[in-house]
Design a protein around this nucleic acid. Structure first.
Lengths: 261, 261
DNA sequence: TAGTGGTCTAGACCACCAT
DNA sequence: TGGTGGTCTAGACCACTAT
């Protein structure tokens, strides 16, 4: 074919197809979980090359509206309820009363099953950004690095990497036991004289790295929230830093705090 | 050409080209701002079709490593310093001492020039999510809707849409003046008996809609932070909700708060 | 106007998934 | 095995940007 067919003047054919499909999704004509027409089918319907139909679907995927699965088609992606995390997740009463870690509490509140997996515990020299937040000398002091993975219904939700000065955690389960829920982590710190009194959370968002996308099984067009959490004790001294990486479509933050004068 | 050329066995040619280019970027061979070879040039170098080289560049853009500009090429994207916003932005002392709104203060701290543009002020029935947070009846009460755009060096950074009950703002500049910085907004509320005492901020992230990407001039592969901010007065009553949409590569949040028992 | 990216064609073969 | 998406070719014309 030579002529531009249905859009002699302006809009690219791929955008027309994209718009048509998006409209069908928004109108509910294509419901969550429904299969879109195949690329070859769309190409025939619109009288375009397969690559053109393919481009339309790529645009939808970029907007997070559909999920592409090699070999089995393209389906409408559903909106999901967010897991919400706030400062109360560090409260001692929550720790004591429910016996559940905050992650488990929030997940089971939604009727889903939580699990936490401690992937590794190592002793390392702290990266510069960690040393800075812990106010320690990266040349002379070492830290423990704990990597936890958090799941809801066996789907990975978050990764949390905790750093704490070796001098604080030495000899405690924080430094050598994989059998310790998040909730009890702060109980261990408290036994060593560091009660969590203030938290600082730095939040930003970005696209996942290819490794993160694979590890967390993140679909296209879903960013991650990156939360750098610092635990500060009753003396105003930082004693623990955790970097959380969360799927942004499944996780949200909900903070409530006083405004200082 | 018929054979798969350089990768008879496994890796797609586009991935090879992508990897080569990413390596050159990471090694500094291609520095920030440098132009990548053109699609046609890459195609010739690697002995592939132009579409294949194009796919490699698309993959880099998806990872946020390069900026594509129609007609003028593909350049290496630089890392940018974040503007950081925390709860102190609502402090009365900041308001009184600097005379600057928190946005202006943070931007000028980085040696850049801030500007704020009030795009519209309207009176509407509140959307359900807003009414819920303001604890008002969406059927009988109306709200003012103020849309502010925030710029640094004339580049759009954030959009903030503020909602407040009409009964509170009626007759004040909040409801009818476009000439009012953000800092003074809370002074106006205070004059009406609502001192901001607690804030709630709900944070999530997502890819921008096509409209947002265009309006905020957001490049590919950059998500937005969406912050739903609720201002709560000395009586614990919410009096104002603002929804901020921020480019995540230029903006971050930095909260410090006490842990409740 | 020359060079860039944006879109498109009409095929082809490969990789994956369900039946 | 048949249908799906993944990748690719060797062209073409259009739209945009700089000179």
């Amino acid at each position: 074919m030579r002529e531009v067919a249905t859009n002699p003047d302006k809009e690219p054919a791929s955008r027309t197809i994209e718009r048509d499909l998006r409209r069908r999704i928004e109108d509910g004509d294509l419901a969550v979980g429904d299969r879109l027409p195949s690329e070859r089918n769309l190409a025939e319907q619109y009288g375009v090359a397969r690559n053109t139909a393919r481009e339309a679907i790529r645009l939808l995927a970029e907007q997070g509206l559909v999920t592409i699965r090699h070999g089995s088609g393209v389906t409408v992606r559903g909106k999901t309820r967010l897991l919400r995390f706030g400062s109360e997740r560090y409260a001692r009463t929550l720790r004591q009363e429910t016996g559940l870690s905050p992650f488990r509490a929030e997940v089971s509140r939604q009727g889903r099953e939580a699990s936490v997996d401690c992937r590794s515990i190592t002793r390392i020299s702290p990266p510069a950004e960690i040393a800075e937040r812990l106010q320690i000398d990266p040349e002379t002091e070492t830290v423990v690095r704990r990597e936890n993975w958090y799941y809801a219904d066996n789907e990975p939700m978050q990764v949390g990497v905790t750093f704490a000065p070796w001098s604080i955690v030495e000899g405690t389960p924080v430094a050598d036991s994989a059998q310790m829920g998040k909730g009890s982590l702060y109980a261990r710190f408290e036994e060593r004289g560091h009660a969590i009194t203030t938290i600082r959370e730095e939040v930003t968002a970005r696209m996942p790295t290819p490794d993160e996308a694979k590890g967390l099984r993140i679909p296209d067009a879903v960013p991650v929230l990156e939360v750098t959490h610092t635990g500060i004790d009753q003396n105003g001294a930082p004693f623990e830093v955790t970097i959380f990486t969360m799927r942004a479509d499944y996780n949200g933050l909900d903070y409530r705090m006083p405004v200082e004068d």
